[in-house]
Measured scan of single mutants.
Amino acid sequence: TRVETATETAWISLVTALHLVLGLSAVLGLLLLRWQFPAHYRRLRHALW
């Protein structure tokens, strides 16, 4: 049971790290898009909202 718990903890930390990385890359990508294509971003936002 001790090994299982350790594996579970490792998986949880791995998944958390993955989610953090994905979230950060998504935010960075959005910022980059907004910085590179302001007109396109505004049009996209206008279409979405």
Rank of each mutant, 00 (worst) to 15 (best):
S13K: 11
V3I: 14
E4V: 12
R43M: 07
E4W: 14
P38C: 05
W35A: 15
W35K: 15
T9N: 13
I12L: 13
L20R: 01
V15Q: 10
A10T: 13
E8A: 05
L28H: 02
R42G: 12
T9A: 14
H40G: 14
V3E: 00
A39F: 10
L28E: 02
F37Y: 15
L31N: 02
S25Y: 05
R42T: 11
Q36N: 15
V27C: 11
Y41C: 15
A17L: 11
L14D: 05
L18D: 02
W49N: 15
V21T: 11
R34S: 07
Q36T: 15
I12M: 13
H19I: 03
H46N: 11
S13F: 14
L48N: 03
P38N: 10
L28P: 02
H46C: 14
A47N: 08
L28W: 07
P38I: 10
L48P: 02
H46G: 09
R42Y: 09
A17Y: 00
E8H: 01
F37L: 10
E8S: 04
V3Y: 04
H40L: 07
A17C: 14
L30D: 04
S25H: 02
R34T: 07
E4K: 09
A47K: 14
V21R: 01
L14Y: 03
L28F: 09
T7C: 02
R34I: 07
E8K: 05
A6I: 07
W11G: 02
L20G: 12
R45G: 04
R2I: 11
A26V: 09
R45L: 06
L20E: 02
L32Q: 02
V15L: 10
E4G: 08
W49A: 03
L28C: 06
A10S: 12
H46L: 09
T5D: 00
Q36F: 06
L20Q: 05
T16A: 12
E8F: 02
R43H: 07
T9F: 13
T16Q: 01
F37T: 04
L14N: 02
A26R: 04
T1C: 12
A17G: 12
T5Q: 00
T9D: 09
E4P: 01
A39R: 15
A47D: 05
R34V: 06
G23S: 10
R42C: 08
L32V: 14
L20W: 07
G23N: 06
T5N: 01
R43C: 08
V3H: 01
L20C: 13
R42L: 10
L30H: 05
R43W: 09
L33P: 05
G29W: 06
V27Y: 10
T16W: 08
Y41M: 11
T9E: 08
L31C: 15
R2S: 12
R34D: 00
I12K: 13
L18A: 01
W49L: 05
L48F: 06
A17T: 13
S13Q: 14
L28G: 00
L32M: 15
T1P: 04
G23Y: 06
